[in-house]
């Protein structure tokens, strides 16, 4: 049984159709990398999985919750949101809360735990990303890399069915990318299913169990990393990979 299944997602902004029928599945423990050119709808697709963007049509099922977006109630949407957490490109830690409170928040406000129940769990996640020393600092007092590690601890704490990550390292200075990728590897080693939009090709190849290549609002090709990176079938995929590899060699 798939832990995540997406069927025929469609989304337009005004008269511009951004998602043109996206379907895919992930099994429990899968790390699915989503690749594709800029403006292709990767972020939009990810934000549809927790209804931060409301799809015009399609179905998303995560764990035990299945939502048909043609007629989804507010209650269903919130139930779907509780199945996943998210790591944002710009971190989006709550600025008025400390590091520890940020990690507790999903447990307290999302899952209804008491603060006493949530605090030890949150400390454990902070220790996992080596941020326990910063527990009582505010996000504005941290480097981008540290903020994103907290972002990962925050996403892990509620033990969601799926963690959604949107380019978690692309807002970071190059020297801070490594520590965040390490934190993501650790999260993956816990066996939690992850959907990760990324431009880090080497990392995607190492960490993924499955790769999705998107272009122009469609899934062009999907398969194990071995296949997508070394034997892509579609010309679009080959072109994209060639361009990305050139860029990585330059950089």
């Amino acid at each position: 049984m798939a832990i995540l299944s997406v069927e025929e997602l469609e989304k337009s902004f005004g008269d511009r159709q951004v998602l043109r029928g996206i379907s895919f599945r992930a099994e429990e423990g899968d790390v699915v990398s989503v690749l594709g050119p800029s403006g292709t709808g990767k972020t939009t697709m990810l934000r549809c999985l927790n209804a931060l963007e409301r799809p015009d049509a399609g179905r998303v099922a995560i764990g035990s919750v299945s939502v048909d977006f043609r007629h989804a109630s507010k209650k269903e949407v919130r139930a779907l949101r509780r199945q996943s957490t998210m790591v944002f490109q710009n971190f989006n830690l709550f600025r008025n809360h400390t590091v520890l409170e940020n990690v507790m928040d999903g447990l307290v406000y999302g899952k209804g735990m008491t603060r006493a129940e949530a605090e030890p769990l949150a400390m454990e996640e902070l220790a996992r990303v080596h941020m326990e020393q910063a527990a009582h600092l505010y996000p504005a007092e941290l480097s981008g890399g540290m903020q994103q590690r907290v972002g990962i601890a925050r996403a892990l704490a509620p033990r969601p069915e799926v963690i959604l990550l949107d380019e978690p390292t692309s807002a970071l200075d190059p020297e801070l990318v490594g520590e965040v990728l390490d934190a993501i590897r650790k999260a993956a080693s816990l066996g939690i299913t992850m959907i990760i939009v990324t431009h880090e090709m080497r990392f995607a190849e190492q960490i993924s169990t499955k790769v999705l290549f998107m272009a122009e609002g469609r899934v062009v090709e999907e398969g194990p990393p071995q296949q997508i990176f070394h034997h892509p079938e579609q010309e679009k995929t080959r072109q994209f990979l060639r361009r990305m590899l050139e860029r990585e060699q330059e950089g």
Partner: peptide
């Protein structure tokens, strides 16, 4: 208040009331 603060509160399952009064209003 940055839109990302709303996004994060929604993504972590906050009710609308908690999103507004725990996250947005204090900022």
């Amino acid at each position: 208040v940055d839109r990302g603060q709303h996004d994060a509160a929604r993504a972590f399952g906050f009710s609308d009331f908690d999103r507004i009064f725990r996250i947005i209003v204090p900022q």
